[in-house]
Amino acid sequence: MAVTFYEQQAANRRNSLLLVVLVGLLLGALGFAIGYATSGYVEGAFLLTGMAIVFATVLSVGSYFAGDSLVLSASGARPVTQASHPQVMNVVQEMAIAANVPLPRVYLIDDSAPNAFATGRDPGHASIAVTSGLLEKLDREELQGVIGHELSHVRNLDIRFALLVAVLVGSIALLSDMFLRGFLRVGFGGRGGGRKGGAGILILIMLVLAVVLAIVAPIFARLVQLAVSRQREYLADTSSVELTRNPSGLERALAKIAGDREVLEVANRATQHLYFVNPIKKFEARASGLMATHPPIVDRINRLRTLRGAPPLSGPEGLGLAAVD
């Protein structure tokens, strides 16, 4: 693979900063538009802009330092010890040595759907969560492949960017939603008015702008989430094989998980991109086919097969996996 993990780390540092700045600008612009539209004065607009930027800063700093605990507790994850789950702790330790990162904290989510995710701000503050279904359904080598994948996300600093995306993008979607609802309810009533002429037109323009921003912001945010998510899944798969030196473990894990029909209850739109495989399945109501955060499992398996010189899956086997994914 042409991308080394140093380059990936650098890209993630850069993208994290870029994301924070972009979200700050977006919230600022949104604040300006809403402020002007509702007050009708530039002073009001700047006041709200300032508030939006302060809010974005607090949000970014907060998610950088506390986002992992937030994501973990939202997923119902509880810490695991060497005494209670020796095998998964051993495998995590092995992979931590292979990836040359400190031992992350390990959490368990009580859910029979096999899945896993990693979160945190850097390798020194990282956590890995696995579902009880993953431990039950995978053998040791397969588990090693999955943990190798998650620790690659840790080492590549994918976790930092993904965490910021989870919290910031989630917040933007929430805010726009609140504004849109509020606007629809209040906007058309009430303010008739004394003001006239040019100011009225400006207010109208700002109003339109506010609505457009509120609609565009979550879409833009989703697109960022998508663009970053797929490519790094392939990279983490490749790095996992590099770490375990065993392409078949991860491949078998992917095939096994693809064939599983269980649904992970605790995942939602804000956290789905963190997981090992997309926890939201096609047949569910909360799924959206157009905007998948993960590449299809068949593609991931085929890339791994290419690595070890095996022909890609085809025929009923490949189609079967493609259908369930």
Binding site: N90, V91, E94, M95, I97
Partner: peptide, 20 residues
């Protein structure tokens, strides 16, 4: 079984540490 798991993980850890 437990001893086998402990020995397996130790052997793997030695393997990965050796690389480093």
């Amino acid at each position: 079984l437990e001893l086998q798991e402990q020995l397996t993980t130790t052997e793997n850890q030695i393997g990965f540490s050796r690389q480093h």
